[in-house]
Design a protein around this nucleic acid. Sequence first.
RNA 1: GGCGAGGUAGCAAAGUGGUAAUGCACUGGUCUGCAAAACCGGUAUGCGCGGGUUCAAUUCCCGCCCUCGCCUCCA
Length: 470
Amino acid sequence: MALTLHDTLTRESHPIQPLDGKTLRFYCCGPTVYGPAHIGNFRTFVAQDVFRRVLEMGGLPTLHVRNLTDVDDKTIRDSQKAGQSLTDFTRFWTEKFHADCAALNLLPPHVEPSAVEHIPHQIRMIETLIQRGHAYAAPDGSVYFKVSSYADYGRLSHLEDRELKLGASTSAGAMDSDEYTKDSLADFALWKARRAEDGPNYWPSPWGEGRPGWHLECSAMALEYLGEEFDVHSGGIDLIFPHHENEIAQSCCSTHGKFAHHWFHVTHLMVDGGKMSKSLGNLYTIEDLQKRGYHPSEVRYVLISGHYSAPLSFTVHSLDSARQALQKLAKFDKALQDRGCPAVPARADLAPGPFTDAWETLNHDLNVPGALGAIFGTINKTKPATISADEAIAAHRGLHFMLEAIGVKLPPLIEEGSVEVPADIAELAEKRWQAKQSKDWAASDALRKELEALGWIIKDSKEGYTVIPK
RNA sequence: GGCGAGGUAGCAAAGUGGUAAUGCACUGGUCUGCAAAACCGGUAUGCGCGGGUUCAAUUCCCGCCCUCGCCUCCA
């Protein structure tokens, strides 16, 4: 079964088939490591992770490249502010990013190149662009890409004649002092001349000391690890313009290839009805949510619960909903284990089985929410206690096939003593048990209500009771 | 102004030219001293608004309203 995926460039869905017939090669724009990534950033990385998992579960090997932007205005500025070397500063945030990725059950990319370690590659690309007449050095030592030299500029974003529209934007960027030496406002920097405020962060180049522009690193590293043409390029929807447009221009003008054949863009996570952003202060990190008692697996579940192409409304409450949904999955798994299924089925045994409709839905433009609906549909009509042993095994393997495809790890069941009960709650619960034993129903019920008001539920059995959070 | 996405039950969110998945929440029943869990059932005559095409539209077409994103370095 081939995955079909919408392509930003053609605005149509296409089956995903590897250009080389063997391995699906794709590039994802990675994080700028100058602070903690927020869950909006992670929506994109999670969607890319699902993309990769679906291909691999479908039997297609992948080559996944995702860069680290560890040299740019923000990393340089904030490392200096922190009094650290750029290397130490970006290493710290890279490690934090990796920890968050692991917590979210993201598969590590096969290659994770660092921009600062590929400056020679970027310089080589600039030299080629200058030789071919697509770039020029300005008097101050910066180098710019000449947008007018590339006829197809704007094809991805459908933004053309951009200069005519300048002024419509409220951004102050265009007036930045950086931009003074450009021939045209549309031109963008390939190499930025050293500035005093960059401190020790500059590198030698044929045009003087400086550092690479942001857009260039992705073109250079994609070329290095994926070649002149590769299958899919992905990122957040806001990168379409100018970042991806610029990448296309740089790559197509410096090589003989067509660069990425398919563009996969993920729409933003919405919070408070708008885009989550640092400047608006409505930004959540994984750590923020962990402090509020949520597990990253619950965050992942929320992030995949909307289709990647549509805005997804995030609320803290949605994490509670995710927790219950995950419990439902875990309970189904437990019921199948009670029928003799292994805790973790062998990967080689995984097959969609009774979850085939969910698998088909997932392969239709990565429809995770639709697939989740189909998964629960199958669960609701599959009664572990009454089906045959073979059916139980098939259901178990199918469930785990789907969980692997969407990257969901089952949580421990809440009833299994995974939550610590505070001493005062335990004491109240014991008092209620005593009241119940002496058949003092009034006192027993009063204590139950009291505990419930405190957020705890008593679950009685013949031998005793357990206390679980509400 | 240009380009793009979206408006489906309390919340979230799929979907389709043939009469609305799923999760959470809520709720009725069985069970239980009462609960919980489990199981059985219920909860949008309706899919932003107004027209049109059609035997049939939430799904196609036209117009309109609203929300959101991008328009130079934001996933």
